[in-house]
Computed example of a mutant assay.
Amino acid sequence: MNAPATRYYDAFLQAILEGHSNDDAVAALLAQPAFAVYRNTIFKGCVDALVANYPTVRRLVGSAWMESAALQFARHHLPRQASLIAYGEGFSEFLCTVEAVRELPYLPGVAALDRCWTESHLAADQPMLAVAALHIALEAGQDVTLVPHASSRWHHDMQHPVYTIWSANRSEDGQAELAPEWRGEGALLTRPHAQVQWQPLSLGACRFLDACRDGFSIARAAGQALEHEPDLDIATMLGQLIQADAFTSFY
């Protein structure tokens, strides 16, 4: 892109985001009533997509609060793709900067789980793990490396019971009134049969999955898990992950 085109693009983007421009050509466009409609349509699409992609957050804070926060986010994070089905990456981190969220410190973690659901739902299809072959390899003493399934997502919050809050409020008919034990929680989301499923997951299991994702063998991944959760039963945890269809293959 040449310099004049780049300057025009920057000026046009400024007009959309800030509602003013120092570029004469863009300023002329901005003065037309249709441009205001165009600008509002862009932001409304972003807000609607965020509300749809973060339903648990919306249920916890209400539509008005959610739409206000979504508009703030959209002004600084325009979509990277024409389709808005996956829009909202970084919204959890954005919520950490919102002053009002200090009264709801668990909200970014809940938003992270909403994001995990979206990513799991949209992930590419992959085959499920060949469990029988894995058992043969393990019985033969092989220290294999497990590959997480494309649809597997996991998140752990060190301070807040985000899984309890999120799972109870994910659907409109869920339980909104809770009194969870105030401690850190994690979750695993998978999509084994075209439908996203979720379950609680310990810190050690989350770190095990982190290590698998980073290419560590089972032995090394187990070591990472035990560093964070010394009492973790590795065999039981591995069985839980396999049963949840968290992996696609091993090598």
Rank of each mutant, 00 (worst) to 15 (best):
P4I: 01
A5R: 13
A5C: 03
T6C: 03
R7T: 13
Q14I: 07
E18P: 01
G19S: 01
S21I: 00
S21M: 06
D23E: 07
D23Q: 11
D24H: 02
A25G: 04
A27E: 13
L29N: 08
L30M: 13
Q32G: 13
A34N: 06
F35Y: 14
V37I: 15
R39M: 01
N40A: 06
T41D: 05
T41W: 04
I42R: 10
I42D: 00
G45P: 03
D48V: 00
V51W: 01
T56D: 09
V57F: 13
A64C: 03
M66Y: 09
S68C: 03
F73W: 03
H76R: 03
R80L: 01
A82D: 05
S83Q: 09
I85R: 15
I85Y: 10
A86R: 15
Y87Q: 05
Y87H: 01
G88H: 04
S92T: 05
C96A: 14
T97F: 06
E99Q: 12
E99T: 12
V101L: 04
P105Y: 12
P108T: 02
A112F: 06
L113P: 03
R115F: 02
S120P: 14
H121S: 00
L122C: 05
D125Q: 01
Q126P: 01
M128I: 00
M128N: 11
V131G: 00
A132F: 04
A132H: 09
H135T: 13
I136E: 13
I136K: 15
A137K: 07
L138R: 15
E139V: 13
D143N: 15
V147Q: 15
P148M: 07
A150I: 04
A150L: 06
R153Y: 04
H155D: 02
H156K: 11
D157T: 02
D157S: 11
M158I: 14
P161M: 05
V162K: 08
V162M: 00
Y163H: 12
Y163Q: 02
I165G: 12
W166G: 08
W166P: 06
S167N: 08
D173E: 14
E177V: 15
P180W: 14
G186L: 10
A187W: 02
L189S: 05
P192V: 14
P192S: 10
H193L: 09
W198L: 12
Q199V: 02
L201H: 04
A205Q: 09
A205H: 06
C206L: 03
R207E: 07
L209Q: 09
L209H: 10
A211T: 11
A211R: 15
A211F: 15
C212M: 06
C212F: 10
G215V: 09
G215Q: 10
G215F: 09
A219H: 02
R220E: 12
A221Y: 10
A225N: 15
P230V: 07
P230D: 07
A235K: 08
Q240E: 14
Q240D: 12
I242C: 02
I242D: 05
Q243A: 15
Q243V: 11
A244L: 07
D245L: 00
F250P: 02
